Amino acid sequence: MFTGLIEHLGTVSSIERDAGGCTLTIAESAPILTDGHVGDSIAVNGACLTVTEFDKEAQGGWFKVWLANETLDRTDLGERKVGDQVNLERAMGAHVRFGGHFVQAHVDTTATIIDRKPDGESLRLLFQLPEPTPERPSLLPYIIPKGYIAIDGTSLTITQVDDSQRTFGVMLITHTQEKITLSKKAVGAKVNIEVDMVGKFVEKSVHASLSGGGSEVMRDTIEKIVEDVLTKKGLV
């Protein structure tokens, strides 16, 4: 589990590809390797990856991660080049304050930056989601104004949503711009998206209740909400 608060920016120092996926080496990463172990989970641009090898000293500290084809298909990591910076966050410790939101670092899809505008010292970014498919339904039901979203692993607040255009926006304050890679990405660049998992759990529970499954409490609650709405509209 992660918080979406980026700890450090690492640099891709090598990429080794084969038919099964690729290995990334992320250098200049010493600050997040102080308590590192092989097998640790590190979110790289919002994708939870397993450390397969590391060295705290060489190249400013480096570690290797393996990316299967599924990960390459779901994320923007297959487009990274040597020299690119990436957002890094270690798995959340039980002893730390929880600042962002619950992030699994299981990327749902990618989105495309379609606009970026300064707003004083802040930066407003607008993203467009891909057309939904049967294999990958729309994520828009989970994206709401003032809700949470993880973009390249960064916990951000949604400022606007347009379901008809499949777009949503966020605003980055100066501090955030300096700490993450997102502010450096241009229009047309892809980003990794993970929607708030709480919305997924709620949707599944509601569907289960409406289809006859789930708990009696949930079903009674849904029926009460529907009855209240219909009463207010004068339909019952």
Rank of each mutant, 00 (worst) to 15 (best):
E7I: 01
E79C: 08
T109A: 11
R136K: 15
I158R: 06
T52M: 10
L88G: 01
V65Q: 00
A19S: 15
M171L: 15
L49S: 13
F102C: 03
K224Y: 07
T110L: 03
S122W: 08
Q177T: 00
Q128G: 04
D152H: 01
P130V: 02
E131M: 07
G100F: 01
K190A: 15
E89H: 10
E16F: 03
R90L: 06
M1K: 07
G199W: 10
C48L: 12
K81M: 12
E7A: 15
V12I: 15
H101S: 06
A43R: 04
T11A: 09
K64H: 10
Y142G: 10
E89L: 05
G214P: 05
C48T: 03
E203N: 02
L182N: 11
R74D: 12
V206N: 11
E131S: 04
T71K: 04
T110A: 06
L123E: 15
T231P: 00
A91W: 03
G214E: 06
R97E: 13
R166C: 12
G188D: 08
N192K: 11
T11V: 14
Q104W: 02
E203G: 00
L230D: 05
I113Q: 09
G212A: 12
L210H: 02
V82C: 04
D152K: 00
F127M: 12
P137A: 15
T110W: 03
G169F: 00
S183E: 10
V161A: 13
V82D: 12
V86H: 11
Q177M: 05
L182E: 14
I158L: 10
K200D: 14
A189L: 08
G78P: 13
A105R: 08
E131F: 01
V170E: 14
F127P: 07
P134N: 14
V96L: 13
S41C: 11
P134V: 05
S164A: 15
V198W: 06
T71I: 04
M218F: 02
D40V: 01
R166I: 08
